[in-house]
Structure formats: C-alpha cells, structure tokens
Amino acid sequence: MSRALFLLFLGWQILAQAQYQTWYGVEIGFKPVKKTKVELGLQHRMNGIKEWSRSYVQAKFHVKVVDGVQLFSGYRFGLLPNSNSGLDLNPTTYRHRTAIGITINPTDWMFDKTRLSFGLTAQMQWNRAKFSRERTVFRSKVNAKYDIEHFPLSPFISGEYFYDFKRDISYTEDEVLIEGGTKAFRWFGGFEIELPKSHSFQLALGKRTAFLSNRSYWIASLTYQVRIQ
C-alpha cells in the first residue's frame, strides 16, 4: 500500500513539474453493416488540469477489406481558444480534420484466436483552421495490447510518428519554398479496464515530443469506451 502511495506521489510530482495535458474522452463504437464499424467520440483536452486547451467531436468509419486489413476515413471538428481573437472578435476558433488510412493487424493472419493484438496504422490527414496554415500530415502508428486472462486490466503500448508535408516554409528572395519534415513523436502506455456489458475505461500516460520546437509535453488520458455489438 505504502509503495503504491509512493508511486502515486512520485507520478503526481512528475506531472506537477512538467508541461502536461490531461485528456478526457468518451467513445462509442458500433457496427452498422457487416464488415464495417463506426466510432463516434468526444474529447476534451486541458493544459494541466485547469486550463482548457481544446475540444473535439470526431467520427471514424472502418471497412474490413480482408482479414487483418481495414481501411478507414474520419472527420474531426475541433473547438479551441482563438489566439487571433483581435481579428474576428471570437474568443474561440475551430479546426477541421479529415483523414483516411489503413490498419493492419498481422496477428489476425497468424492466429485464429489470440490475446495479443498487434497493429500498424498509416494515416493521411488534412488539417484546416481559420488562422493557421493548412497542414497535410502523415502518421504511422504501432500498437500492441495484451488481454490478460482472468484479469480486468489489459496493458497496451503505442508509438506514433508524425510527418508534416508543410512543416518548413522559407520565403526566399523570389519564391516560397515549402518542405516537409518530422513534426513529432508520441507514445502511450496504459491499461484498459474491462467493465461489464462491453464498457471499458482506458487509462494512459504518454508523451508527445515535438521536433524542432519546445512544445513537448506529457499526456494523461482517460477515455470511457462503449462497444455496441
């Protein structure tokens, strides 16, 4: 007990002294048609635990192509504080994101039934906002989860790479050069807590490391998930 308290205290101290965000989310997933899946979600992000950073509403549509391969498309609407409120007199501004991608689960090819799931995701996304540059970002993610038998916690880890096709803009003497480059890395580790009737909680701790900027921060994430069969 005392060890758990010590770890809790230590974790709290790390978070208190670091730049961090807390994410709170709700996700609902269901299968409208055979071989398809729809995920709807809400997420609220805070700088620390008190300052609002942004809120998202998102929808994602998956289609199973063959065993272990899914294609998906998604849309996310974001609402966030407007740093250019002097220009349009709105305290908040919005951001749109559309994405398409592919998810591959090699474990589906190797085993008929396994408690280990291992996935690779590649995603292209297009971000558009009122007072920010349009961004085209490629993301690739590796994630693994293990469902421990007769135990309510399923540990998982993931690592993600972000490549921005319009990261660097140089205004030379006579032209504008737009070059791509690594934007960030992000990893998560945590547990999924299984609840009765296809409900679950996902608790995760992660870090986003921005490349060529000092906007790196820790992330504490709590998501409530409902899977309607």
């Binding site: 998604g74 220009l87 749109h96 297009w126 906002a129 009122k130 007072f131 319009k166 803009i169």
Partner: peptide, 18 residues
C-alpha cells in the same frame, strides 16, 4: 458530409497562409 464540412471552413485575410 465530411468533405462538405471540410470545404466549408471559411478562411479570411490574415495569418495562417503561405
């Protein structure tokens, strides 16, 4: 619906361009 929403994001003169 997704692409209509995406294209409806109004841009105005100011920062955020290239």
């Amino acid at each position: 619906i997704l692409f209509l929403s995406f294209s409806s994001c109004k841009k105005i003169e100011g920062p955020g361009g290239t």
